[in-house]
Design a protein around this nucleic acid. Sequence first.
DNA 1: AAAATCTCCAACCGCACCCGT
DNA 2: CACGGGTGCGGTTGGAGATTT
Length: 379
Amino acid sequence: MGRPPCCDKSNVKRGLWTPEEDAKILAYVSNHGIGNWTSVPKKAGLNRCGKSCRLRWTNYLRPDLKHERFAPEEEELIIKLHKAIGSRWSLIAKKLPGRTDNDVKNYWNTKLRKMLQKMGIDPVTHKPFSQIFSDFGNISGISNTGNLNKSLNSSLMSKPDHQFSSAILTTTEPSCFKKTMEEQVQEYNPTVTHPTSWDFLAQFPVHDTKQSPLFFNEVSSCPSSSPSSSSTSTFTQPYSCQKSQAPLITPTCTFTWSEFLLSDPVFSAEFQHQQEQYDFDEMLSPTNSSTMAMAHNDLSSCNITSTGSDDDWYLNRSVGRSTYGHGTVNNGLEENNNAADHAAYYSSSASSFVDGILDRDRELHSQFPPLLDPSFDYY
DNA sequence: AAAATCTCCAACCGCACCCGT
DNA sequence: CACGGGTGCGGTTGGAGATTT
């Protein structure tokens, strides 16, 4: 039994607002102020749902809103905050005067996300696709099975190369991203001699948490919407996804957001030296609201159980989902972090947990030699 | 010029939380 | 403590306008 609708949807107008309707809202708010939106339609003479009125006001009519395009500084701030706290649009919007969460969300989805993808950055994890791909390949052994070349060939036959030359940096793009996806793949995977394609990457849904949550979504995975999360700083589960529950990996140590943020050279500089400007403590203070408190937990005190660094976390997630892959010995992180920009932006380290998994992988191979046959297929 | 496709964003939806009763 | 109305939030959709074919 769900919650009853806030109004009779069949009898209220929906869709785009007219100037007349806007004027009624503005007139009502100027006379009565904001409050009890469910009664606003009736009092203002509108045939709209109260929720719709509130949305129209907060997202469009509020006098303090900016309607011009986002400035490069705003773009950079959104990216940094998204890396730090994920798709907490309302929190991000609070740091952008005159912008609503809807503005920020739309701008992210239409511009910034695509821009990052073009530059070879996974917009969910903020890691280079090449690193993700390399990790995945090295752990699951894709490159050993022959499927890599097969996939590359098929994808390259279907898509022209010019797709990969689109990552031309503009002056509005943040300076912290320098390399195209193609460059990164060449750099991180010397064995890959051809440009790759989105189709090819799409076959390995490492950044699609809906289809296959191979990699931990550091933000949405925090049980921030859970009532209990606001009262505890330690998760009882290593990770939990609201919509896609992933199998658990036994935790061996803890990871804190504050350490993660402060270890990030880009974010920590802002965080430490301009704390007043960002002022997460104030913004995320538990005294403000439960949402703030939950986000505070995410940022400052929420402990995410992990086997080491955040990179290990991502890595372990992929390991956990690739039990039967053909693992290579190296985890690929150390040797693949030779790009100065990304080495500065993304730190990594080896993991005994990963080694353990790889040992087990090798053990499986020794016990089941057919697995090493490139022609072996599960289907 | 027309049709097809793409981009963008306003608006909607459903869920969860807050808070008064 | 339970309930229910109000609100906040993030994800998604629909359609208008722009662009390409």
